[in-house]
Nucleic acid binder design. Structure first.
Lengths: 185, 185
DNA sequence: TGGGTCATGTAACCTGTTACATGATTAG
DNA sequence: CTAATCATGTAACAGGTTACATGACCCA
């Protein structure tokens, strides 16, 4: 997955591993966490597959940098990946951790949902601030035809945080009702 | 993660690896895909850590079965895991695949969201049928205090499919508008 | 006689995580 | 003087995926 994310970024413009790391950290982190170590490993592998090429640029005072570019084969691979229709069945640690909560008392689980609620409300506030995030992206995307898709992911983020807020509220309510049905247990 | 899922199931009652596989396949698959090979591997590891114990039961005609039980240490580990507050930052292949779609023409991406829309609507229909799924669960959960949490995960599933439906509709609309702004490109 | 269920696993692989390592420049 | 930034990575580990393997019983 990360391989194709890197191809996607290099398709905007040439970058070093360090810059790719920065984009993931500052802009894509809300949907993809990428470790520096993995980025460099994948770049090596992408090169071995002929999907990217690199040029070493000597610098004064700083270490040399390797600037990567997508090759035509890489761009084709990117398009191929975009067109694949995989049923993206991601495992959900959140639901796993919720499913088995019967082992804990309702009071404890109410606290669990309260924390989730706070998280969702705060995260939504952050995501709704377009200037800060948009500024990050503008370095990467200039073309409005590409920016649409970026906006879609942000919109998803906002909707998801709203889901989490509503869901945690519903769950807390159910647990409150349960405390009345099975009191002092 | 799967380790704790298995502990959670064994905490309901003793099971063989084969039965655990069945529960994941029939009931938990919508939030966690577990491979048979991994289940057996994790059971071995859980035993090595002293979180489960097993008894071999000889059978006529069928291969022997290993019936697993949680130990007190395992139950403690389960509770500990439930109480951890990790920020569950799962990577989203869905958003990764959406973010980079600027490489494809809008018409192609409209088809992408149409497929997503169909998926969400169908999945929601399936999830809203309680009898079929509930029957699967009743073998595992009898206690209403535990069933609440199961219902919460189902409710999340329904809300999530609704999110996917609304989001894909919004995205399609944006792309239709874009076709007018940047026609025949 | 052929496919489904019961019941067990191994081996290799891929991808992501954690911890560690180096070293110069620059801004406060 | 010290923390951040630029810039590179390696090693070991953890967890999930794919492919393969065995074998008997039961139902149609």
């Amino acid at each position: 997955m990360l391989k194709h994310g890197i191809l996607g970024l290099l398709n905007y413009h040439d970058m070093t591993g360090y810059e790719i790391r920065g984009v993931f950290k500052d802009s894509l982190a809300f949907f993809w966490q990428a470790q520096t170590s993995q980025i460099y490993r994948e770049l090596k592998e992408l090169k071995a597959r002929g999907w990217v090429s690199d040029v070493t640029v000597p610098q004064k005072g700083k270490p040399d940098k390797n600037v990567f570019s997508v090759t035509e084969a890489g761009r084709e691979e990117l398009r191929h990946w975009l067109l694949e229709d995989r049923k993206e069945t991601a495992n959900s640690p959140l639901l796993m951790r919720t499913f088995f909560r019967g082992e804990l008392p309702p009071e404890e689980n109410i606290r669990y949902f309260e924390a989730m609620h706070r998280f969702a409300v705060e995260a939504m506030e952050t995501m709704k601030q377009p200037p800060a995030i948009a500024a990050e992206y503008e370095r990467v995307i200039q073309d409005p035809r590409r920016a649409v898709y970026w906006n879609m992911t942000i919109e998803y983020g906002v909707m998801y945080m709203d889901l989490l807020r509503r869901w945690s509220e519903d769950c807390m309510q159910k647990l409150e009702e349960m405390k009345h049905e099975y009191p002092a247990d």
